[in-house]
Design a protein around this nucleic acid. Structure first.
Lengths: 219, 219
DNA sequence: TAAACAAGTAACTAGTTAGTGCGTTAACGG
DNA sequence: CCGTTAACGCACTAACTAGTTACTTGTTTA
């Protein structure tokens, strides 16, 4: 492969006028924000094009329509959290510390990436019709469940965790106690008459979550 | 108040041709289903009118537009769960049994009324702008939190619950472990490669949830 | 029983929306 | 430097969508 003008432009610090990869990336980023803000149904293709500084025609050129664009954004989102989870290296920590790290990480990930939650909610409203088509998500998720399974087994061997805990149920619960709080932060703040997103409220919550999981798992 | 023809018709078992209350009720029921199925943005006013066997004009006559109709449906949904919770009469049971009953009830309510979850999700996508206007929901929710608070205090006095547990955090957690499972049943079934809605999966989950809460709360 | 009112309807509007046909021009390879 | 390819953009459409106007008809009540 020869040196392309894209590479030349990048090396020279000059943006090129036409750059397929850059345009695709801008569309994806804009789409992620728009889908997260308004859901699949509420998102507007014209808005995505405008925010991406691209022509709407390009969305259909690169992503073949709104649904397929959403599918790509959703897959990227799952890849993001699964990749981050793998980087935790839970095997380098003793079981209890590793479990606490996982609970804290999950909480902080949702907090920093509320768009992940909105995308997943939107996908469930559509009965997971996009995710069904994705094979990558299944594979990476399996790896993640395996990671937690190993952690549980390691803890049981060390005598610090109770035996017989289903890693899937544990995963669901760790996700649930963070996810619910974040996704329902608006209605929750009204129903419970307190600002759920205040700094001390967030700190209180993560401590409660860690205690919930520790009491569930520890021997 | 005189005997209306609506009452006469009801007494005679004949449906009247024009009945404001009945039409309003049909619109509300149709709206609940349509909003639950497609969210606020995805719901179609024409579809609601058609399913309600009413003219679209009636929706604007009785509910003053799509947003206000959604607000009414949402308020009704909150009233539904809060009313059901009050009927639990947790004070008639010993603390542990009462807590288990609450966890099981919450789970079963979400299972039987998934539309409640979809409505709440939709409302959070819109940053709770409809719920903000509702004063009734605040009042009934306060009563509910008070109920759980009393239960906790009763358990602490009896020496079966740990002291110092925040009733709001407990409420959030009881809701979370059920809500998350149900709302993400479609993506969850793919990610974890098992049918989360299978009968034995549901039974396994409710047992896990009860154990999670009991371990968190019990002394 | 007839006026007054409320329930109900059909057809319409004005604005929006996802998706496209087709022409233009920058970039690449030779 | 020139032909080919791929990136890009304009302007359009066909279908849809919340909300409305103007009207008809059933029900109540004086």
């Amino acid at each position: 492969m020869r040196t392309t003008s894209a590479q030349k432009a990048k090396a020279a610090g000059k943006p090129r006028l036409r750059d397929a990869e850059a345009t695709k990336a801008r569309i994806l980023e804009a789409a992620k924000k728009e889908f997260a803000k308004n859901g699949l149904g509420g998102a507007r293709v014209d808005v995505i094009a405008e925010k991406a500084n691209a022509n709407k025609r390009m969305i259909y050129h690169y992503f073949d329509g709104k649904d397929h664009l959403f599918q790509t954004v959703l897959e990227d989102a799952y890849n993001g959290i699964r990749t981050a989870e793998q980087k935790l290296n839970l095997n380098d920590l003793e079981p209890k510390a590793a479990l606490e790290k996982l609970v804290r990480f999950t909480w902080e990930y949702y907090l920093k990436h509320p768009e992940f939650i909105t995308l997943v909610n939107s996908e469930n409203l559509h009965r997971a019709k996009h995710l069904k088509k994705s094979q990558v998500v299944r594979a990476t998720s399996r790896k993640f469940v395996g990671m937690v399974k190993e952690l549980l087994e390691r803890g049981v061997s060390a005598g610090v965790f109770r035996p017989g805990i289903d890693p899937v149920q544990l995963n669901l619960t760790i996700a649930a106690i963070g996810y619910y709080y974040i996704t329902n932060r608006f209605t929750g703040s009204i129903v419970f008459e307190r600002d759920l997103m205040a700094k001390d409220a967030l700190e209180e919550r993560v401590q409660f979550n860690i205690e919930t999981i520790m009491r569930m798992v520890c021997a």
